[in-house]
Protein backbone atom coordinates (compact mmCIF):
# COMPACT_ATOMS: atom_id res chain seq x y z
CA UNK A 1 0.00 0.00 0.00
CA UNK A 2 1.47 3.35 -0.99
CA UNK A 3 1.23 6.20 1.45
CA UNK A 4 1.40 9.87 0.57
CA UNK A 5 4.76 11.56 0.92
CA UNK A 6 3.87 14.50 3.16
CA UNK A 7 0.37 15.74 2.54
CA UNK A 8 -2.79 13.74 2.48
CA UNK A 9 -4.05 13.46 -1.08
CA UNK A 10 -7.38 15.03 -0.19
CA UNK A 11 -8.40 17.16 2.69
CA UNK A 12 -11.95 18.48 2.89
CA UNK A 13 -12.64 21.23 5.36
CA UNK A 14 -16.05 22.51 6.46
CA UNK A 15 -17.75 21.43 3.26
CA UNK A 16 -21.42 22.33 3.02
CA UNK A 17 -23.49 21.90 -0.11
CA UNK A 18 -27.06 23.06 -0.64
CA UNK A 19 -29.41 22.00 -3.39
CA UNK A 20 -32.06 24.69 -3.47
CA UNK A 21 -33.20 24.99 0.13
CA UNK A 22 -32.00 21.53 1.15
CA UNK A 23 -28.67 20.84 2.76
CA UNK A 24 -27.31 17.87 0.82
CA UNK A 25 -23.91 17.51 2.42
CA UNK A 26 -22.08 18.69 5.50
CA UNK A 27 -18.58 17.42 6.21
CA UNK A 28 -16.49 19.03 8.88
CA UNK A 29 -13.16 17.38 8.15
CA UNK A 30 -12.24 14.47 5.92
CA UNK A 31 -8.77 13.29 5.02
CA UNK A 32 -7.99 10.77 2.28
CA UNK A 33 -4.51 9.39 1.76
CA UNK A 34 -2.95 8.39 -1.54
CA UNK A 35 -2.90 4.74 -2.60
CA UNK A 36 -5.85 3.66 -0.49
CA UNK A 37 -9.31 2.38 -1.37
CA UNK A 38 -12.09 4.32 0.32
CA UNK A 39 -15.67 3.19 0.41
CA UNK A 40 -18.57 5.56 1.10
CA UNK A 41 -21.69 3.72 2.09
CA UNK A 42 -25.17 5.10 2.48
CA UNK A 43 -28.74 4.91 1.25
CA UNK A 44 -30.00 6.85 -1.75
CA UNK A 45 -30.00 10.58 -1.13
CA UNK A 46 -27.36 10.35 1.61
CA UNK A 47 -24.99 12.66 -0.29
CA UNK A 48 -22.55 10.02 -1.64
CA UNK A 49 -22.72 11.16 -5.24
CA UNK A 50 -22.62 14.83 -4.27
CA UNK A 51 -19.46 14.16 -2.28
CA UNK A 52 -17.89 12.37 -5.25
CA UNK A 53 -18.79 15.19 -7.63
CA UNK A 54 -17.30 17.71 -5.22
CA UNK A 55 -14.05 15.75 -4.85
CA UNK A 56 -13.86 15.20 -8.61
CA UNK A 57 -14.26 19.00 -8.97
CA UNK A 58 -17.39 18.65 -11.09
CA UNK A 59 -19.34 20.54 -8.47
CA UNK A 60 -18.19 23.43 -6.36
CA UNK A 61 -19.51 23.16 -2.80
CA UNK A 62 -21.58 26.04 -1.48
CA UNK A 63 -19.07 26.44 1.36
CA UNK A 64 -15.76 24.97 2.40
CA UNK A 65 -12.30 24.29 1.14
CA UNK A 66 -10.65 21.34 -0.58
CA UNK A 67 -6.92 20.69 -0.47
CA UNK A 68 -5.44 18.37 -3.08
CA UNK A 69 -1.91 17.24 -2.26
CA UNK A 70 -1.72 20.08 0.24
CA UNK A 71 -2.86 22.87 -2.08
CA UNK A 72 -6.16 24.72 -1.78
CA UNK A 73 -7.71 24.10 -5.15
CA UNK A 74 -10.28 26.85 -5.13
CA UNK A 75 -7.70 29.56 -4.63
CA UNK A 76 -5.59 28.78 -7.67
CA UNK A 77 -6.97 27.95 -11.11
CA UNK A 78 -3.69 26.27 -12.16
CA UNK A 79 -3.76 24.04 -9.13
CA UNK A 80 -7.37 23.14 -9.88
CA UNK A 81 -6.73 22.18 -13.49
CA UNK A 82 -3.61 20.20 -12.58
CA UNK A 83 -5.62 18.36 -9.91
CA UNK A 84 -8.39 17.74 -12.41
CA UNK A 85 -5.96 16.07 -14.80
CA UNK A 86 -4.95 13.62 -12.10
CA UNK A 87 -8.43 12.30 -11.41
CA UNK A 88 -11.39 10.88 -13.22
CA UNK A 89 -14.69 9.31 -12.43
CA UNK A 90 -16.89 6.52 -13.70
CA UNK A 91 -20.55 7.53 -13.35
CA UNK A 92 -23.07 5.23 -11.69
CA UNK A 93 -24.79 4.54 -14.99
CA UNK A 94 -21.87 5.17 -17.33
CA UNK A 95 -22.36 7.08 -20.56
CA UNK A 96 -20.44 5.84 -23.58
CA UNK A 97 -20.05 8.14 -26.55
CA UNK A 98 -21.99 7.05 -29.59
CA UNK A 99 -19.02 5.61 -31.46
CA UNK A 100 -16.67 2.64 -31.20
CA UNK A 101 -15.17 1.30 -27.98
CA UNK A 102 -11.71 2.32 -29.22
CA UNK A 103 -12.77 5.92 -29.88
CA UNK A 104 -14.35 6.07 -26.43
CA UNK A 105 -11.07 5.05 -24.84
CA UNK A 106 -9.05 7.36 -27.07
CA UNK A 107 -11.15 10.40 -26.18
CA UNK A 108 -9.22 11.59 -23.15
CA UNK A 109 -5.86 10.58 -24.66
CA UNK A 110 -6.54 12.80 -27.68
CA UNK A 111 -7.32 15.66 -25.31
CA UNK A 112 -3.87 15.18 -23.87
CA UNK A 113 -2.31 15.37 -27.32
CA UNK A 114 -0.82 11.87 -27.36
CA UNK A 115 0.25 10.52 -30.77
CA UNK A 116 -1.95 7.83 -32.32
CA UNK A 117 0.50 4.95 -31.81
CA UNK A 118 0.78 5.71 -28.12
CA UNK A 119 -2.98 6.13 -27.80
CA UNK A 120 -3.71 2.75 -29.35
CA UNK A 121 -1.16 1.09 -27.07
CA UNK A 122 -2.81 2.57 -23.99
CA UNK A 123 -6.26 1.62 -25.28
CA UNK A 124 -5.13 -1.99 -25.71
CA UNK A 125 -3.58 -2.08 -22.23
CA UNK A 126 -6.72 -0.67 -20.64
CA UNK A 127 -8.99 -3.13 -22.44
CA UNK A 128 -6.64 -5.92 -21.43
CA UNK A 129 -6.95 -4.81 -17.82
CA UNK A 130 -10.74 -5.28 -17.89
CA UNK A 131 -10.64 -8.40 -20.06
CA UNK A 132 -12.19 -6.88 -23.18
CA UNK A 133 -9.36 -7.15 -25.72
CA UNK A 134 -10.89 -7.51 -29.18
CA UNK A 135 -13.75 -5.11 -28.41
CA UNK A 136 -11.96 -2.15 -30.05
CA UNK A 137 -14.16 -1.83 -33.11
CA UNK A 138 -17.47 -2.69 -31.42
CA UNK A 139 -20.12 0.04 -31.30
CA UNK A 140 -20.33 1.24 -27.71
CA UNK A 141 -24.12 1.44 -27.81
CA UNK A 142 -24.45 -2.23 -28.67
CA UNK A 143 -22.69 -3.54 -25.56
CA UNK A 144 -24.47 -5.20 -22.66
CA UNK A 145 -24.79 -3.30 -19.38
CA UNK A 146 -21.89 -5.18 -17.79
CA UNK A 147 -19.63 -4.71 -20.81
CA UNK A 148 -20.49 -1.01 -20.94
CA UNK A 149 -19.51 -0.70 -17.27
CA UNK A 150 -16.17 -2.37 -17.97
CA UNK A 151 -15.54 -0.17 -21.03
CA UNK A 152 -16.27 2.93 -18.93
CA UNK A 153 -13.79 1.64 -16.35
CA UNK A 154 -11.21 0.94 -19.08
CA UNK A 155 -11.75 4.45 -20.45
CA UNK A 156 -10.94 5.85 -17.02
CA UNK A 157 -7.91 3.55 -16.64
CA UNK A 158 -6.49 4.57 -20.03
CA UNK A 159 -5.88 7.95 -18.39
CA UNK A 160 -3.83 6.33 -15.62
CA UNK A 161 -5.37 8.64 -13.01
CA UNK A 162 -3.88 9.25 -9.59
CA UNK A 163 -7.39 9.16 -8.13
CA UNK A 164 -10.26 7.10 -9.52
CA UNK A 165 -13.81 7.85 -8.40
CA UNK A 166 -16.37 5.11 -8.91
CA UNK A 167 -20.00 5.95 -8.28
CA UNK A 168 -21.82 2.74 -7.36
CA UNK A 169 -19.62 0.64 -9.68
CA UNK A 170 -21.58 -2.55 -9.16
CA UNK A 171 -25.11 -1.14 -9.01
CA UNK A 172 -26.04 -2.03 -12.59
CA UNK A 173 -23.94 -5.16 -12.93
CA UNK A 174 -25.11 -8.74 -12.65
CA UNK A 175 -23.84 -10.92 -9.82
CA UNK A 176 -21.35 -12.74 -12.05
CA UNK A 177 -19.58 -9.53 -12.99
CA UNK A 178 -19.53 -8.01 -9.50
CA UNK A 179 -16.58 -10.13 -8.34
CA UNK A 180 -14.76 -9.44 -11.62
CA UNK A 181 -15.21 -5.70 -11.16
CA UNK A 182 -14.16 -5.85 -7.52
CA UNK A 183 -11.03 -7.79 -8.48
CA UNK A 184 -10.15 -5.26 -11.16
CA UNK A 185 -10.59 -2.40 -8.69
CA UNK A 186 -8.33 -3.97 -6.07
CA UNK A 187 -5.77 -4.90 -8.76
CA UNK A 188 -5.58 -1.33 -10.08
CA UNK A 189 -5.05 -0.08 -6.58
CA UNK A 190 -2.41 -2.70 -5.79
CA UNK A 191 -0.44 -2.51 -9.02
CA UNK A 192 -0.71 1.14 -9.96
CA UNK A 193 -1.10 2.66 -6.50
CA UNK A 194 -4.21 4.46 -7.70
CA UNK A 195 -6.36 5.90 -4.95
CA UNK A 196 -9.87 4.55 -5.41
CA UNK A 197 -12.86 6.34 -3.92
CA UNK A 198 -16.07 4.44 -4.43
CA UNK A 199 -19.64 4.68 -3.27
CA UNK A 200 -21.97 1.79 -2.68
CA UNK A 201 -25.10 1.04 -0.74
CA UNK A 202 -23.74 -2.38 0.05
CA UNK A 203 -21.80 -2.39 3.31
CA UNK A 204 -20.42 -5.89 2.73
CA UNK A 205 -19.01 -4.86 -0.62
CA UNK A 206 -17.42 -1.77 0.90
CA UNK A 207 -15.71 -3.89 3.54
CA UNK A 208 -14.66 -6.41 0.92
CA UNK A 209 -12.71 -3.95 -1.21
CA UNK A 210 -12.08 -0.78 0.76
CA UNK A 211 -9.29 -0.21 3.25
CA UNK A 212 -11.44 2.36 4.96
CA UNK A 213 -15.21 2.64 5.02
CA UNK A 214 -17.21 5.79 5.73
CA UNK A 215 -20.94 5.93 6.11
CA UNK A 216 -23.02 8.84 4.96
CA UNK A 217 -26.48 9.52 6.22
CA UNK A 218 -28.53 12.58 5.29
CA UNK A 219 -25.37 14.33 4.14
CA UNK A 220 -23.33 13.65 7.27
CA UNK A 221 -20.51 11.23 7.95
CA UNK A 222 -21.69 8.75 10.54
CA UNK A 223 -20.25 5.70 12.19
CA UNK A 224 -19.77 3.06 9.48
CA UNK A 225 -22.84 1.03 10.13
CA UNK A 226 -26.16 1.35 8.48
CA UNK A 227 -27.61 -1.91 9.66
CA UNK A 228 -28.91 -0.96 13.06
CA UNK A 229 -30.43 2.29 11.95
CA UNK A 230 -33.74 2.91 13.66
CA UNK A 231 -36.35 5.57 13.11
CA UNK A 232 -38.34 6.79 16.06
CA UNK A 233 -38.49 9.49 18.71
CA UNK A 234 -36.72 10.28 21.97
CA UNK A 235 -38.84 9.98 25.12
CA UNK A 236 -38.10 10.66 28.74
CA UNK A 237 -39.79 8.77 31.56
CA UNK A 238 -39.09 7.69 35.10
CA UNK A 239 -36.87 4.90 33.81
CA UNK A 240 -34.68 7.43 31.99
CA UNK A 241 -34.21 8.62 28.45
CA UNK A 242 -34.98 6.20 25.68
CA UNK A 243 -35.33 6.00 21.93
CA UNK A 244 -38.77 4.66 21.07
CA UNK A 245 -38.98 2.96 17.68
CA UNK A 246 -42.65 2.13 18.15
CA UNK A 247 -41.74 -1.52 18.68
CA UNK A 248 -39.00 -1.37 21.29
CA UNK A 249 -37.50 1.19 23.61
CA UNK A 250 -33.72 1.58 23.55
CA UNK A 251 -32.09 3.24 26.54
CA UNK A 252 -29.85 6.13 25.59
CA UNK A 253 -27.71 8.58 27.57
CA UNK A 254 -29.82 11.27 29.27
CA UNK A 255 -27.85 14.03 27.54
CA UNK A 256 -30.05 13.43 24.48
CA UNK A 257 -33.29 14.06 26.32
CA UNK A 258 -33.95 17.36 24.51
CA UNK A 259 -32.80 16.17 21.10
CA UNK A 260 -35.42 16.07 18.34
CA UNK A 261 -33.51 13.55 16.27
CA UNK A 262 -35.53 10.80 14.62
CA UNK A 263 -32.68 8.37 13.97
CA UNK A 264 -30.53 6.20 16.19
CA UNK A 265 -27.91 3.62 15.34
CA UNK A 266 -26.02 0.91 17.22
CA UNK A 267 -22.62 -0.45 16.14
CA UNK A 268 -22.96 -4.19 15.34
CA UNK A 269 -19.68 -4.98 17.12
CA UNK A 270 -20.76 -3.27 20.34
CA UNK A 271 -23.62 -5.67 20.93
CA UNK A 272 -22.87 -8.54 23.28
CA UNK A 273 -24.44 -11.82 22.34
CA UNK A 274 -25.25 -14.52 24.88
CA UNK A 275 -27.24 -17.73 25.21
CA UNK A 276 -28.45 -16.75 28.71
CA UNK A 277 -29.46 -13.31 30.01
CA UNK A 278 -26.23 -11.35 30.43
CA UNK A 279 -25.82 -9.68 33.80
CA UNK A 280 -24.00 -6.37 33.48
CA UNK A 281 -24.39 -2.65 33.95
CA UNK A 282 -25.43 -2.32 30.30
CA UNK A 283 -28.94 -0.86 30.22
CA UNK A 284 -30.17 -2.45 27.02
CA UNK A 285 -31.01 -6.13 26.94
CA UNK A 286 -33.34 -7.81 24.45
CA UNK A 287 -34.30 -11.42 23.87
CA UNK A 288 -34.55 -12.49 20.28
CA UNK A 289 -34.07 -15.14 17.62
CA UNK A 290 -31.55 -15.35 14.79
CA UNK A 291 -33.25 -14.87 11.43
CA UNK A 292 -30.25 -14.73 9.12
CA UNK A 293 -26.56 -15.61 9.20
CA UNK A 294 -23.94 -14.32 6.76
CA UNK A 295 -20.19 -14.27 6.85
CA UNK A 296 -17.30 -12.37 5.34
CA UNK A 297 -13.79 -13.62 6.03
CA UNK A 298 -13.63 -14.31 9.74
CA UNK A 299 -16.54 -12.01 10.51
CA UNK A 300 -19.98 -13.47 11.02
CA UNK A 301 -23.06 -11.26 10.79
CA UNK A 302 -26.23 -12.28 12.52
CA UNK A 303 -29.58 -10.64 12.00
CA UNK A 304 -31.55 -11.01 15.21
CA UNK A 305 -35.26 -10.36 15.48
CA UNK A 306 -36.13 -8.88 18.84
CA UNK A 307 -38.89 -6.40 18.11
CA UNK A 308 -36.54 -4.69 15.65
CA UNK A 309 -33.99 -6.59 13.56
CA UNK A 310 -30.51 -6.05 14.97
CA UNK A 311 -27.33 -6.78 13.01
CA UNK A 312 -24.68 -8.26 15.32
CA UNK A 313 -21.08 -8.89 14.35
CA UNK A 314 -19.02 -11.63 16.00
CA UNK A 315 -15.89 -13.59 15.13
CA UNK A 316 -16.09 -16.95 13.41
CA UNK A 317 -14.62 -18.57 16.52
CA UNK A 318 -17.28 -17.18 18.88
CA UNK A 319 -19.91 -18.21 16.38
CA UNK A 320 -18.68 -21.80 16.38
CA UNK A 321 -18.20 -21.91 20.17
CA UNK A 322 -21.75 -20.73 20.77
CA UNK A 323 -23.14 -23.30 18.35
CA UNK A 324 -25.57 -20.84 16.80
CA UNK A 325 -28.13 -21.55 14.11
CA UNK A 326 -30.99 -19.80 12.42
CA UNK A 327 -33.87 -19.65 14.98
CA UNK A 328 -31.47 -19.95 17.96
CA UNK A 329 -32.82 -17.98 20.94
CA UNK A 330 -30.28 -15.47 22.18
CA UNK A 331 -29.90 -12.29 24.21
CA UNK A 332 -28.56 -8.98 22.96
CA UNK A 333 -26.96 -6.61 25.43
CA UNK A 334 -25.45 -3.19 24.84
CA UNK A 335 -24.73 -0.01 26.75
CA UNK A 336 -26.77 3.15 26.42
CA UNK A 337 -23.58 4.86 25.27
CA UNK A 338 -23.31 2.41 22.34
CA UNK A 339 -26.38 4.05 20.85
CA UNK A 340 -25.60 6.95 18.57
CA UNK A 341 -28.24 9.57 18.03
CA UNK A 342 -27.93 11.06 14.53
Amino acid sequence: MMMSARHPQFELLDIVHWYGGKKALEIGHLVLHGGEIYGFVGPNGSGKTTLLYIMNLLLRPTEGQIFFEGKPIYEDANCRSSAQRKMTMVLQNPYLFDTTVEKNLEYSLKLRGLPREKRLGLVRDALDEVGLVGFEKRRARQLSGGEAQLVALARALALDPRVLFLDEPTANVDAKRIRQLENIITKINRERGTTVVLTTHNLDEAYRIAHRVFSLFEGNLVSPTMHNLFKGAIRTSREGTCFDTGKIRIQIPSEYKDSESEHATVDPDEIILSREPFVSSARNSFAGAIVQISSEGDRVYLDVESGEVFRVEITGQSFREMGLNVRSRIYLTFKATSVHIL
Binding site: N56, N93, R155, L159
Partner: peptide
Protein backbone atom coordinates in the same frame (compact mmCIF):
# COMPACT_ATOMS: atom_id res chain seq x y z
CA UNK B 1 -28.33 12.91 -22.13
CA UNK B 2 -26.97 15.04 -19.28
CA UNK B 3 -24.32 12.40 -18.66
CA UNK B 4 -22.67 13.21 -22.01
CA UNK B 5 -21.47 16.56 -20.63
CA UNK B 6 -20.51 15.07 -17.26
CA UNK B 7 -18.56 12.27 -18.92
CA UNK B 8 -16.63 14.67 -21.13
CA UNK B 9 -15.81 16.72 -18.03
CA UNK B 10 -14.64 13.72 -16.03
CA UNK B 11 -12.32 12.82 -18.91
CA UNK B 12 -10.71 16.25 -18.74
CA UNK B 13 -12.46 18.12 -21.56
Amino acid sequence: DRRAVLTAQTLGA
